[in-house]
Write a protein that binds this DNA or RNA. Structure first.
Length: 436
DNA sequence: TCTGGGGTCCTAGGACCC
DNA sequence: TCTGGGGTCCTAGGACCC
């Protein structure tokens, strides 16, 4: 039996729901099928999802609603407010079904997942066959249309998915990994370079200016040039396009490093009390998200903006970072800090359009387990705590330290004045029950 | 009148330290 | 006359993604 030629050879599939939000709406309202449909952002401000019919009309992603009016009337476009609870639920269903196809999966976004297919070759006649199975099953069980792209790197799987979506002859599944080189080259020569994952508008136009306008041209560009011109990220993209996998599958979503809550106002806002109400709400919901990931943050940033699209109005935007004396995820503390910051940056006389907060300097809320305390807590209280903190590599001022009274050894856990000055402030923040 | 709401990573430059 | 060099941390800005 032949062994795998190269142990580092990778095979990825990207499964992506077509026009996700629109497809979710259609799943529950079949009369929307074959009609032009857009889903609108909060406040019904702009289009954030478009059906193929709407895309064909040339309506951009993010097109403001009022600009759509005329076309909407003319072509009988159905415009729907967004329903994120529904989309989240549908997303979870799709992800659950995909787990049956591979032991290793990364949920990349609300409508996309990567699977690794390494070592699964014997389960299916071909990868494309598996792709069709995914399509049929998801369609049957959720009514959602998906496309599947397969490639030797995540970037190639993304590209394959794009091809599967755009070119009907692939019937929704494109496998670049087994495609003959000549065919791949022909295909990539016909795709605009901006379609590559990691090539945005800026780099795209610079590539065009340098005469690199197709995916094939980018793939064949020397890596050293990409590195020198655009940095390590584009060099990596170059490698990925050549089939050298540089991006790994992230099966476990890492905790957020920042948490934002912000929103445009439906109507113009001028007065501080109105802003305060909004900011307090944002701080509260951000704190909730933070606690959900068992986090604490060291600072909260608050920001306000006027409407940048109203050029005739005086513009003002500002932000302030308010540090917290101790890391926390406490709603009241965060709201208080955010409102303090808001007062500092608020200027009367402007019409505000947006406000929000960002939690930054996020760490993990850690707990010193009883066993560790017992292990280190044999001396006086401050010694034991100090050792335990060292053992956990905690740093003063960055983490919440909690001790359970039920397991805390008594001799050193009794009296506040026995603690070293360094930790005195911490104890005030610690959810410890001292009474025995 | 009305223009989304989240995230990530990289780089350059300055402050500061030894 | 000759006036260091390596390292870290922080911030702002720019690019990208969905």
């Amino acid at each position: 039996m032949a062994t795998d030629a190269s142990p580092s050879r990778q095979l990825f599939a990207l499964v992506d729901v077509n026009n996700f939000y629109v497809s979710c709406e259609r799943a529950f309202n079949p009369s929307l099928e074959n009609r032009p449909v857009v889903v609108l952002s909060n406040n019904d401000g702009c289009a954030i999802a478009r059906s193929n019919e709407v895309k064909a009309l040339g309506i951009r992603m993010g097109a403001p609603c009022f600009q759509l009016k005329e076309l909407a009337d003319k072509y009988d476009i159905v415009a729907l407010s967004s329903n994120y609870a529904l989309y989240g639920d549908m997303s979870n269903r799709v992800a659950a079904m995909l787990r049956d196809y591979s032991p290793h999966m990364e949920v990349y976004s609300i409508d996309e997942s990567f699977l690794t297919l390494n070592g699964l070759g014997s389960l299916w006649p071909t990868s494309a066959y598996m792709g069709q199975s995914i399509r049929h099953r998801i369609r049957q069980w959720t009514e959602l249309p998906v496309c599947v792209g397969i490639g030797a790197s995540k970037t190639l799987a993304k590209l394959a998915n794009h091809i599967a979506k755009k070119q009907p002859r692939f019937n929704g599944v494109c496998d670049l990994a087994t495609m003959p080189l000549a065919e791949t080259d022909a295909l990539l020569s016909g795709i605009e370079v901006g379609e590559v994952w990691g090539v945005g508008p800026r780099i795209g136009s610079q590539l065009h200016a340098a005469g690199i306008s197709t995916v094939k041209a980018l793939r064949d560009t020397p890596l050293s040039w990409l590195r020198a011109r655009f940095g390590v990220v584009m060099e990596r993209t170059g490698n990925e396009l050549r089939g050298l996998s540089c991006l790994t599958l992230e099966e476990v979503a890492p905790p957020r490093k920042q948490i934002i809550s912000s929103r445009s106002f439906g109507q113009p806002v001028r007065a501080l009390p109105h802003l305060s109400e909004s900011v307090a709400g944002h701080a509260s919901s951000a704190a909730e998200k933070l606690r959900r990931q068992n986090g604490v943050c060291g600072a909260i940033q608050v920001f306000i903006q006027t409407n940048r699209f109203r050029e005739q109005d005086p513009q003002y935007s500002n932000s302030m970072v308010v540090p917290l004396p101790n890391e926390s995820s406490d709603t009241r503390l965060l709201v208080r800090a955010a409102l303090f910051g808001l007062k500092q940056i608020y200027r009367a006389g402007y019409t505000y359009n947006k406000a929000g907060v960002m939690l930054i300097d996020i760490g993990e809320a850690r707990t010193i387990q009883g066993s560790l305390l017992a292990q280190h807590g044999t001396g006086n209280r401050s010694d034991g705590l100090m050792k335990a903190i060292d053992a956990l590599n905690l740093r003063y001022g960055r983490n919440t330290v909690s001790v359970f009274s039920s397991v805390a050894p008594k001799p050193w856990a009794m009296r506040r004045e026995n603690t070293s000055p360094c930790y005195t402030t911490r104890w005030s923040d610690v959810p410890v029950a001292y009474a025995h």
